[in-house]
Design a protein around this nucleic acid. Structure first.
Length: 420
DNA sequence: TCTGGGGTCCTAGGACCC
DNA sequence: TCTGGGGTCCTAGGACCC
């Protein structure tokens, strides 16, 4: 089996550059929600020492005025992503979209002109059609394809394609790759592995199976098999239905006022309810959490969450808001400076599976019509103008987005972006 | 002054049932 | 004095991903 992992280079930065060619060859970062920290960096920005997750104020303190900052613009990235994915789909029978900027391609039947050349063709076509640069890694398993992709970026920058085509080449790649750079090995496991003398992916491939199982659970076993060239991660051509849905945000500034925070909780609940309806699922329970800013060492800290069971599974905004407020009232305490709150819905079941008694049924039909109308109106306006009374009518917890680019390819309204 | 948001999978341990 | 065992469901928490 041959698997390709196609990955857009510095995706968010590449999207911004597409519409602002002057950013080409400039150090550019894209900032997270709230303009909090860097979540995408151009090569030039990486060379200036900007790390993933560097807070904006630290970027300023090191290299003020040398770098272009963009607020993140998810509608734009989402639209370009689907165009890239559509182009990739034209090459192979099926692709697995792994994230906004990555997809796995089953290349097993593609070996007509040689897999390396096929990879080059894919890369050139995406660049020509969409304008986004991509890298391609081809190998016998997903984990090795990820590694090959990274190798292409690091070692074969100009070509941007690497085919790990036989055992000798794969072993070279494994020896080159340090454990902390393997897909599936995070900081904790990397430290553990290094302590035990496993430094490269090649070491890990040859580690005792017993040890892997004992210290890294079944995931470690799977990972080791993948490194040995035995595919152990299933294809996922159709996206699974979600198991949890979450909406949470940091506030633009620290908040103490219960009413304003409750409005945020209600807005995020409405957002979760909308996502549930889009997925055609209902939630069994809803969790609410609030927290202070852990980075402010001098402030008194408070973090709390609560799970509220719903009377019956629901995706109705008013039902969810009612329960969310109930939970919020239990966990909220005066006297703290809050930085963030969020809402998470759990135990999702298909809409069609929800059992109701007759009384509930009659009520639900009425509510469904109301909800459908609200969704339709809000969608056609391109923003959430129509709301329940407990939601916010103005942005008292508004997020910052000082460097926002225009929505070049979509009709989304500015307000949708900054409001939620 | 200023530090993201949205997910997944796995395991352990408790509650409960027979 | 001796005090089962297996199964399921749920939740919390850890680790990881982009």
């Amino acid at each position: 089996m041959w698997i390709a992992l196609v990955d857009c280079n510095n995706f968010y930065v590449s999207c911004e550059r597409l519409f602002k060619p002057a950013l080409e060859h400039q150090p550019v970062v894209v900032l997270s929600n709230n303009d909090g920290c860097a979540i995408a960096r151009s090569e030039e920005a990486k060379q200036l020492g900007v790390k993933m997750g560097t807070p904006e104020f630290m970027i300023d303190s090191i290299i003020k005025n040398k770098i272009v900052k963009c607020s993140s613009n998810y509608p734009l990235y989402g639209d370009l992503s689907s165009r890239v994915m559509k182009t990739l789909s034209s090459f192979v029978p099926q692709i697995e979209i792994y994230s906004i900027d990555e997809a796995f391609l089953d290349m097993t039947d593609m070996d007509i002109m040689g897999l390396h050349d096929t990879g080059v063709m894919i890369r050139n076509t995406v660049k020509k059609n969409i304008g986004i640069p991509v890298s391609v890694g081809i190998a016998p398993t997903k984990t090795l394809a990820k590694m090959a992709n990274r190798y292409a970026k690091k070692m074969l920058r100009e070509i941007g394609v690497f085919h790990a085509s036989d055992e000798k080449i794969i072993n070279q790649m494994l020896s080159y790759t340090r454990v902390e750079d393997i897909w599936g090995v995070g900081r904790q496991y990397a430290e553990l592995l290094q302590r035990h003398g496993f430094l490269t992916a090649f070491d890990l491939k040859n580690a005792p199976e017993e040890w892997m199982r004992k210290n890294m659970t079944v995931q470690g076993q799977r990972l080791q098999n993948e490194l040995k060239g035995i595919p152990s991660i299933e294809w996922q051509f159709v996206s699974k239905t979600k198991k949890n849905i979450c909406t949470s945000r940091s506030f633009g500034k620290l908040l103490t006022d219960k009413t304003i925070i409750q409005q945020a909780v209600c807005d995020y609940t409405a957002s979760c309810a909308f996502k549930l309806r889009k997925e055609r699922t209902c939630a069994k329970s809803i969790a609410v959490f609030v927290q202070t800013n852990p980075h402010r060492k001098d402030d008194v800290q408070y973090v709390r969450s609560i799970i509220v069971q719903l009377p019956s599974p629901s995706n109705d905004t008013s039902v969810l808001i009612k329960q969310a407020i109930k939970g919020f009232n239990i966990i909220f305490k005066d006297g703290y400076k809050y930085m963030k709150c969020g809402v998470e819905v759990h135990g999702l079941v298909p809409e069609t599976q929800v059992q109701l008694n007759l009384f509930e049924l009659a009520e639900t039909e009425k509510k469904k019509k109301l909800t459908k109308t609200l969704d339709t109106v809000n969608r056609s306006l391109g923003k959430n103008l129509v709301k329940y009374a407990v939601q916010s009518s103005e942005n008292k917890y508004k997020l910052r987005a000082d460097y926002l680019s225009k929505r070049f390819t979509t009709n989304f309204d500015e307000i949708l972006e900054v409001n939620l």
